[in-house]
Nucleic acid binder design. Structure first.
Lengths: 133, 133
DNA sequence: TTCTAATTGCAAATGGTTTGCATTGCTTGT
DNA sequence: ACAAGCAATGCAAACCATTTGCAATTAGAA
């Protein structure tokens, strides 16, 4: 996704495109993996305050730029939302390997439950082929 | 699930079946819904300390009596594991209604990824039919 | 019943996240 | 280019969920 796309979203929302916000975007774009706040902050260290990283990520969530990924690690992870679609993951708790799963149940669940689904999480944890021995 | 079943698990694991542990089991059994620690503690108030609730729930997780449910609310919820199978949920963020979804992807994901899946979370948040208007 | 290790309660510590506030810095109008 | 006004930042303190240390209590085996 081009930076201009995100600048656009912020402009439309009437918020400023500031240095910390650019830094967080850069970090997430470079990572290509869901990052924790700590990890984002590390990648941005000395250029943006931890509190600003939190504020920025929360803003990005509201703007639909970023989504939360839950691994039950005691904190959240965040990833950029690409062109509409999103990912789900399997995490190897041994070596930390993260793999995509190409499944999404949104439509099916909306039909089954008659809910308007606004967000969902679906992540798996286990042992990858090599770590399972 | 009968109480004796849980007593058995604890006996086999070599841990004691204490009053706080019984209270937490009772609370979870009565609720029939994933409860937060706070909710468990409220249902047990004056009979077990908050720290003991935490310790008990963690123990139950290790023993496979309880599993975590993630709604990204900033804290965890816990539910008893029934006879082997487990549930997934849709939460209405407006009125708090919680509905079961009868889908589980464990097998499919294990095959797709070649991981040995040890745990997973899959929960949906949105608006139920009446709240969506 | 007695004894001992496991468990509890309480209070203090921890760690992730949020907030208050003074300062900084865009941005728009002049 | 300049000033005014408002948004956003940095820093420190506050907050809230969860964990931990330790002395007192208790389950349950002998």
């Amino acid at each position: 996704m081009l930076m201009s796309h995100y600048i656009d979203i912020m402009k439309k929302a009437g918020v400023k495109f500031t240095r910390p916000r650019k830094l967080v975007l850069d970090a997430l774009q470079a990572a290509k993996q869901p990052l924790s706040i700590k990890e984002i902050h590390k990648r941005v260290r000395n250029k943006a305050d931890l509190a600003s990283v939190y504020r920025t990520v929360n803003l990005f969530q509201d703007l639909g730029i970023v989504r939360e990924v839950q691994f039950g690690e005691g904190y959240q992870r965040y990833e950029l939302i690409g062109e509409g679609q999103h990912h789900h993951y399997v995490l190897c708790i041994e070596c930390g390997k993260l793999e995509d799963i190409d499944i999404c149940l949104l439509d099916r669940v909306e039909k089954m439950t008659n809910f308007k689904i606004l967000s969902h999480s679906m992540e798996f944890q286990g042992l990858c082929h090599s770590c399972a021995g």
